[in-house]
Design a protein around this nucleic acid. Structure first.
Lengths: 232, 232
DNA sequence: GCATGTGAATAGATTCACAGCG
DNA sequence: CGCTGTGAATCTATTCACATGC
């Protein structure tokens, strides 16, 4: 059931697998049966050697002289990412952002299903959002257990983020996506990823400031290399 | 008026400066005058040697045997990030996510000011959000010019993302924060950073699937890509 | 012939460990 | 003496270049 685990897959590679997955979905819609590393690289915005090396960590799924079978590769990457099942997710915090996430339909298509909404504020509890009713954060444990939730999204103010993380962990959640601009202290077995909008803007600001009219774009993490900047 | 640029600052370091900044604001509120790399590392969730090396790229702002002056360091990092001024920002796309971002008050405090909202949908145009009125995307150029906007946030469905990016670039925007799950093709001078919620969840799914055993919380600031957003 | 798969080379980031200085 | 600043060592990631095998 679980993936082969031929090698230990590098973190940087794991972070790119979802990008390849998306590109492959596009290609699959166009009824293309096979794809070369060159073409996939172009769609994903990376370099072809990187694509080949990344895919080689999953196994030898390509055919020399031909390329990769799109459907087969889609399946292999999905399996590697654990997306052959749907993961139940809880959103904690239903302010502007939490609500936007709750209403966003794009997760379902990608292997995730929002199954519970939780907030600490009495005014929020009981509210209906889509086909879910917001429940109180004190009920987190039974909800997580009942719905077999493994992934939690924190969309609260940062002042409550650590408390919420503690509750999620206590309830048995082992993966957390944190939108609050706060560092979370969690046990080693728990994975945390952070999305911080202000941080992203500040990084853009850095590169923006350095260019006035010169050079040097940053790079979101994909290709490209920063050029040198002349001294002021 | 721009920073000293003693060395070229590594990308990984740039991505951590906002984290240090936030930690320093906390510390400053507590009226602490100086801070050691050890303590700052703890607050930022990184290792102390990394803090020292990162800060050393900005200059020698610490005092041996003592630590760093909090206020001074705050200023230096802010300056390096270009946050001594407020950047005017436009949000394109006012679906659930765009609206949530528009209503989110956290940017102002961090050096950014949302000065314009733009959408292509007639139903959206004219709507009031906070103290702004949504304007039509066709007016982008004059708006960008009038407000001296350098940073644009794309919160549209991915099908429009490239078109919006082209318009932003044509209007003179040189930094883009992209929430749409699409790769953007832009000129070299333009910086793009991408925030992709589904990708983040998929990365969590990978580690979740490899349960119990090792943990490997991926890095927050750099790579990432894949899906996200926008709503209709 | 042609595109994969992969060792080897290079580049970049992190960590170590200690010299240097207040 | 304590903590910064930094070369050196290590680890991770990227890119090159070509042998391999369809």
């Amino acid at each position: 059931m679980s993936a082969p685990v031929r090698h230990r897959i590098p973190e940087a590679t794991v972070a790119r697998l979802p990008v390849y997955l998306r590109s492959l979905f596009q290609v699959a819609e166009a009824k293309t049966a096979t794809i070369s590393s060159e073409r996939l690289a172009e769609l994903a915005g990376v370099n072809a050697a990187k694509v080949r090396k990344d895919l080689s960590f999953l196994g030898s799924y390509g055919t020399r002289g031909v390329g990769y079978d799109v459907e087969y590769l889609l399946f292999q990457i999905s399996r590697e990412l654990g997306l052959t099942q749907d993961w139940p997710v809880v959103i904690v915090g239903l302010g502007n952002l939490g609500l936007a996430l709750a209403k966003y339909g794009g997760f379902e298509a990608r292997g995730f299903k929002i199954v519970a909404l939780v907030d600490a504020h009495p005014g929020k509890v009981g509210q209906e959002v889509g086909d879910l009713v917001v429940r109180h954060v004190d009920e987190l444990s039974p909800i997580v257990a009942a719905e077999r939730i493994a992934i939690g999204i924190i969309a609260t103010p940062s002042s409550s983020a650590q408390d919420v993380a503690d509750r999620l962990v206590a309830a048995g959640v082992t993966s957390i996506l944190n939108f609050a601009p706060a560092r979370l202290d969690v046990p080693d077995q728990v994975s945390v990823r952070k999305v911080d909008l202000s941080t992203e803007l500040q990084i853009l600001s850095f590169y923006q400031q350095r260019q006035g009219a010169m050079v040097a774009p940053p790079r979101p993490g994909l290709e490209g290399a920063a050029e040198e900047v002349a001294l002021a």
